[in-house]
Amino acid sequence: MKKIRWLPSQQDSHNRWVVFFSLLMGVLLDSISWSGDWGVAIPDVTPLILLYWVMAIATNNFLVTAFFFGLLHDVLYHTGMGTYALIYCFLLYPMLHLRLQIRNKTLVQMSLFIGVWMLAHQVLVWLITPANHLAMENIAFWFAIPISILLWSFIFLSLRVLRRNMNVR
């Protein structure tokens, strides 16, 4: 008879802490205020980290995590509560469907897929958050997409090192 596990195992708990702190680092990086018009071209790092963990740990859907860190971003960016939570959930859901295929791609192919996701992120941010309607006037806002494609390799490799060193499975 298969034993049903109600409490998280030690490994699950360990995984959660590592994911949690890596996402906190993402929030920290997103908290840095970049001066100048081109500051909007710096992509959010938290959704990229979130997408990595969704691909890396296929046993978890991370929806609750995405929701929680979305709320943190709402506080951080002074958007209506639930705005970024909704955006992150929308981003995660298709990734949950496709993660098994995407994670077997090469790093370059993966970066391009991430570019599609970040395009969706920017469009959702542009559509949902009122302040970003000004984004149409500032082309730098859309530069976050190619920058996130470039950034993905660094994030992917860094988190892979972290995952292996911290024995996250």
Binding site: V64, A66, G80, M81, A85, L86, L92
Partner: peptide
């Protein structure tokens, strides 16, 4: 269901906050 619940909760929060 988690996805639907998270989205619904997000929308409720957005409306409530507004």
């Amino acid at each position: 269901w988690q996805f639907v619940a998270a989205c619904a909760l997000s929308l409720i929060l957005m409306v409530t906050d507004e």
